[in-house]
Design a protein around this nucleic acid. Structure first.
Lengths: 120, 120
DNA sequence: CTACCTACCTGAAGCTACTTTAGGTCAAGC
DNA sequence: GCTTGACCTAAAGTAGCTTCAGGTAGGTAG
C-alpha cells in the first residue's frame, strides 16, 4: 500500500505519516526498491490506531512509548494494556469537558435568543 | 480580582491568560496604578467561556473573531450565536471521535486480555 | 532599616505537533 | 522528449502554549 492510500484510510495527512515515522511511531515500514514506503495491512492498522489515540489527546511521547512496547512483541502486552487503560480514563475526562461545554453553550445560546427577540 | 484568582477559577494558567490578552482575546482588562491586571467578574466569566471553548477545540483565530464581536456589543449577537452554533457542531464531531476511540480501545483491551490469559 | 519573600510584570526563547516549502527522483502518457 | 503526478528529503514556518531571565512593589522577620 502506498502512503496516499494509508493517509486516506487513517485520516492522517501524508506529511503526518512521514513525521510519525521519523518520530519513531512506526519505524518498521518497509521501502520498495524505488525508495518509496510500502505499508502492509498491519502497518495501516497500527497507524489507524495511532490516529485514533492522537485525535483523542494522547501525546506523542506516550504514543512512542506505546510503539516501543508494540515493537517488542506480545511479552509487553500487559504494559500495552496499561497504556490503553490510562487513555480510556483520559477519554472520560474529555467526555466530561465536552458535556460541560455543551451545557455552557446551550445556556449562552438561549440568552442570545432572548436578546435577539428583544431587539426585534 | 488578581490574575492568580482568575487562573484558579478558569483552569487557565497565568501565562496563558497573559498570552490571551496579548493575542487580543481580552483586550479590555484594566490595570491598577501598580500596573497589575485587575479582572472584573465579567472579565473572569468571559475567560471562563474562552477556556471552555478552547479546551473543546476552538482555534485561537476563531476565538479572536468571537472576542471582537463580543467587544462590539449586543448588535453582534446574531453573529456571536453563529460562532457558538458552529462550535456546537464541532462538539458533536469530537463526541463521535471519542466514541469511536472507545470502541477501538475496548476491542483492543479484550484482545489483550485473551493474549494475557493464553500466556498464563 | 535592610534583607528577603511573594506576587505580579515584560520580552524572548523553547517546546510540541504538525504543515508548508523548496528542490529532487522516477515511471507513465502524450 | 517533455510534461504530469506520486513519491522522496531536509528545512523553515505555524499554533498554542510554557519556561526563563530579569525587574518592580509591598509585606514582614531580624
Amino acid at each position: 500500500m502506498m502512503i496516499s492510500e494509508v493517509a486516506e484510510r487513517t485520516g492522517l495527512s501524508i506529511s503526518t505519516i512521514r513525521f510519525y515515522e521519523k518520530s519513531g511511531l512506526c519505524p518498521f515500514v518497509q521501502r520498495g526498491s524505488d525508495g518509496k514506503r510500502r505499508f502492509s495491512k498491519t502497518d495501516a492498522d497500527w497507524l489507524e490506531l495511532l490516529a485514533s489515540l492522537r485525535s483523542t489527546g494522547m501525546p506523542l511521547v506516550e504514543m512512542r512509548a506505546f510503539a516501543e512496547l508494540y515493537a517488542s512483541g506480545d511479552g509487553k502486552v500487559p504494559e500495552r494494556k496499561a497504556v490503553l487503560l490510562a487513555h480510556r480514563r483520559r477519554l472520560e475526562d474529555r467526555q466530561a469537558e465536552l458535556d460541560r461545554c455543551r451545557v455552557i453553550l446551550d445556556r449562552k445560546l438561549k440568552r442570545y435568543d432572548e436578546i435577539i427577540k428583544d431587539q426585534a
